[in-house]
Nucleic acid binder design. Structure first.
Length: 278
DNA sequence: CACTCTACCTGTGCGC
DNA sequence: TGCGCACAGGTAGAGT
């Protein structure tokens, strides 16, 4: 389930890997499953064939591929959202797409970008400007400054778990990192934004930044047997019934805001405490 | 405004 | 072995 750190890892691997995408020209585009494209697949193909990839940007969980078509003055952007099970892989052209590949972008020098997605929730679509998409989102969770975050936090009266998941507040946090952040901040998922002390609110901000930047540095999360994108060790997500790494209390799972939520009932008390960060 | 539900989709893992 | 089924989750959009 790619969230900010995993999406950033994808971006980096495509930009800074041994075979960087920027600078390469699209030779062909194949839509293997039309639902993956939001818009007309033929139009997408016409616009991107012959276009040169200039850069790949990220905002929250969205990727934006900047393409300069040969006969246009301004670039076109391919927006991509991987949702839960989407993956992007740059493979040699002789590699046959597996049955879950939805979209193929054939580049020069025999490189093909595979957009694979077993669940088929992921989407790719063209935009004139990434701002069309990012206007609906809050600031990127790694870019937001303390004052901006605290302003957004105190502007509402909401439970912390759904608040962190709301992409219009800050963009990039999903179910896994929301649980990890709240655990490390020592905050119960049902605590409300307006109930936080100043120290708790600042601690939450610092924890968001700390957890996400550490996860980016470790190339994403590592979840036992499920999701091994990177090496960032999760402390509570998917660890129901196992002892909390900090105090040994069994990790519990409840539904908070319709979402499965794992936390340590001892380290994350529902009542305000002066414990501070973990 | 805050919350809840539903739809989308399919692989996984459980109970029987 | 195999069937049925709940479950997982990001987002949009509708409803309470």
């Amino acid at each position: 389930m790619p969230e900010l750190p995993e999406v950033e890892q994808v971006r980096r691997s495509l930009c800074d890997g041994p075979l960087p995408l920027p600078g390469r020209t699209v030779q062909d585009l194949r839509v293997l499953r039309p639902a993956v494209v939001d818009g007309n697949p033929d139009e997408l193909r016409q616009l991107l064939c012959g276009a040169v990839c200039r850069s790949i940007e990220r905002h929250g969980k969205y990727l934006f591929f900047c393409f300069q078509p040969s006969h246009a003055t301004h670039p076109h952007w391919l927006a991509v959202h991987l949702r839960m099970t989407g993956r992007l892989m740059l493979l040699p052209e002789h590699q046959a797409p597996n049955r879950h590949v939805r979209l193929l972008l054939l580049f020069d020098q025999g490189l093909t970008l595979h957009f694979e997605d077993p669940r088929g929730f992921g989407r790719a679509w063209l935009v004139e400007d990434p701002a069309v998409v990012t206007a609906r989102l809050g600031p990127d969770a790694l870019q937001v400054d303390a004052a901006g975050f605290l302003r957004r936090l105190t502007a509402v009266r909401r439970q912390l778990k759904p608040l962190l998941l709301d992409q219009s507040v800050v963009a990039g946090i999903g179910n896994i990192y929301a649980d990890e952040i709240l655990f490390r901040a020592g905050l119960h998922p049902r605590r409300t934004s307006h109930s936080l002390s100043e120290a708790e609110a600042t601690g939450l901000y610092r924890t968001i930044h700390q957890v996400l930047s550490q996860a980016v540095a470790m190339q994403g999360a590592n979840i036992d047997g499920v999701f091994k994108a990177g090496r960032y060790p999760v402390a509570v997500y998917g660890r129901v019934g196992l002892p909390c790494s900090r105090c040994g209390t069994k990790v519990v799972k409840e539904r908070v805001g319709q979402r499965g939520t794992s936390f340590c009932p001892a380290c994350q008390p529902l009542v305000s405490s002066t414990a501070g960060e973990l």
